[in-house]
Design a protein around this nucleic acid. Structure first.
Length: 499
RNA sequence: GGCGGCGUAGCUCAGUCGGUAAGAGCGCUCGACUCAUAAUCGAGAGGUCGCCAGUUCGAGUCUGGCCGCCGCUACCA
């Protein structure tokens, strides 16, 4: 048994949950569910990032305290993921006391180790980005709109430049630390291009975690936020727990935050004396009409709208199946619906439906046992291998495509044997037993993407328990449908969607 | 400017070490079937694998150049 600690980015409470956020969280949820099936000890973390100037100002504008502002938005994320059936083990908030302790400890250690020093910044500051910007990037429009302000403040800087070599060595020695591989080159490019020290504190705001060695300073959002991954694993609170979990840490991130995660964060860990560095799984953006999912168009559709259109599992499946993990992916309501109708209504749902109906018509509603040795068993073995590899490589779309081959072959088998033309008896029993067995395995293999629908389908087959409690790879071995179970001839699992 | 990636059927994409790889799914057309959610099964049409040149007995697959799209990064005006 191995540990699998996966994190999503924590989401900034300045924004409402949208499909882009959901995309990260669902990929992580499906992958961790797969690892649970394997019997791995899984820790899946998501949460919210709650400090910083933007939150402080949004709170002021709403006449609220920053904490109340953060509480409200954080709750929206929590509710959104619950609605999507996300099985995160914890939901961390950067305003929690344990997180304050962890950030202070991590940064204090870096400070004690000599990697943090003070300097004065005098220049332009972008409120929107919460970042210092250079003179030439300041535009008149920004000034008029108040997006850019003049600022002079004493800062503490992190000696990022001291870690160039260590980071390059680490990436050299661990070529699989970033997947898909293309993104590894980006991280290497950033490092090889030369690293500059970075400002990590602010005196201009209050809404943040206090710097332990300097009154009036709080940590800048990013250095506060990144540490959440360590906090949740017990850093600063429970060293035994941290030691157990941290070596298996993996961060699921979008390509826009590679610099912070794949360069700054490992350096921060090294500076604090943490030498186990995490792995990264990087995904692209969802595009609508060729443009990044922003605050317009499809974005106006909330995850919850899509749940009402496709059902939780319909949405989860269509999104995961239609978007290769890594590259940017074009998505639309039409493409999701097409995927839903083809793969779920026509293939999986309809196969289940016809199988159950046939069992009722030919076998009195009692599901027969399969052949112990049957050609479909070979299909299952191949499908299992490819499905497992897909999940292992953090490629949900590949894994699901592999699983669906079993559904296709089972439909084909049914068509070839035509049990509806045959009188009840052992021949029909065996055919239907084979189909039920095939469906049993599909229910398990598809459950990371569709935990609820697969449980329902499992029950239709007359099986007790849940596909979520099965153990792979044993449970995917052919021939375990016991026979003699009461099969349920119910309503279609995935009603075909018309428009 | 530098580094890197991409450009394969209408759509989304696979193509490992150059040699039955020109493929899959969807969509489309035709046929079959009727257990099932007008679902399923079969057959077929459709591509000069961005362009040009080269290496080779043989190149989506290697080399050079070009065009187009994109990412990271630098900098000069």
């Amino acid at each position: 048994m191995s540990r699998y600690y996966l994190t999503t980015p924590i989401f900034y409470v300045n924004d409402a949950p949208h499909i882009g956020h959901a995309y990260s969280v669902l990929n992580g949820d499906a992958v961790t569910r797969w690892h649970r099936l394997l019997g791995d000890e899984v820790f899946y973390l998501t949460g919210t990032d709650e400090h910083g100037l933007k939150v402080q100002r949004a709170a002021e504008a709403n006449g609220l305290s920053p904490q109340v502002q953060a509480d409200r938005t954080s709750q929206r994320f929590r509710a959104a993921w619950a609605e999507l059936g996300v099985a995160n083990d914890e939901f961390i908030r950067t305003t929690e006391p344990r997180h304050h302790r962890a950030v202070q400890k991590l940064m204090q250690r870096a400070y004690d180790n000599g990697y943090i020093y003070s300097a004065t910044y005098d220049g332009w500051y972008s409120v929107a980005d919460e970042a210092y910007i250079s003179q030439e990037d300041v535009t008149e429009e920004d000034l008029k709109a108040g997006r850019v302000e003049r600022m002079t403040e004493e800062n503490y800087f992190f000696a990022l430049s001291a870690f160039e070599e260590q980071l390059l060595d680490w990436y050299e020695a661990n070529p699989h630390n970033i997947t898909p591989e293309g993104y590894r080159n980006e991280a290497l490019g950033i490092i090889a291009g030369g690293l500059r020290d970075i400002s990590i504190t602010r005196t201009s705001i209050d809404w943040g975690i206090p710097v332990p060695w300097a009154d009036g300073h709080v940590f800048y959002v990013w250095y506060d936020a990144l540490t959440n991954y360590a906090t949740a694993a017990g850093y600063g609170d429970d060293e035994g727990r941290f030691a157990a979990w941290w070596p298996s840490a993996r961060h699921l991130i979008g390509k826009d935050i590679i610099r912070f995660h794949c360069v700054y964060w490992p350096a921060m860990l090294l500076a604090a004396g943490v030498n186990d560095l995490p792995k990264f799984h990087v995904h692209g953006w969802l595009l609508v009409g060729g443009k990044k999912m922003g605050k317009s168009a499809f974005n106006q559709i909330s995850p919850s709208d899509l749940v009402s259109d496709f059902g939780v599992d319909g949405f989860r499946y269509a999104l995961l199946r239609d978007t290769p993990f890594g590259p940017d992916s074009e998505v639309s309501h039409e493409s999701l619906q097409q995927r839903y109708n083809t793969d779920l209504a026509n293939n999986f749902g309809n196969l289940l439906q016809r199988a159950c109906a046939l069992v009722h018509r030919k076998c009195g509603g009692v599901g027969p046992a399969p052949d112990t040795d049957h050609p479909l068993a070979d299909v299952v073995a191949a499908v299992y291998a490819d499905t497992a590899e897909g999940w292992e490589r953090f490629q949900p779309s590949v894994a699901l495509e592999a699983t669906w081959r079993l559904i296709r072959d089972t439909n084909e088998y049914l068509q070839a044997t035509e049990p509806w033309k045959t009188d009840p008896g052992s021949v029909v029993d065996t055919i239907l037993g084979n189909v039920l067995e095939s469906l049993r395995i599909v229910c398990i293999l598809a459950s990371p993407a569709m935990p609820f629908a697969c449980e329902v389908a499992w029950g239709r087959l007359g099986l007790s328990g849940s596909p979520l409690d099965q153990r792979l790879p044993e449970a995917a071995e052919w021939g375990q449908y016991p026979g003699g179970l009461a099969v349920v001839d119910g309503e279609p699992l995935f009603p075909r969607l018309l428009d």
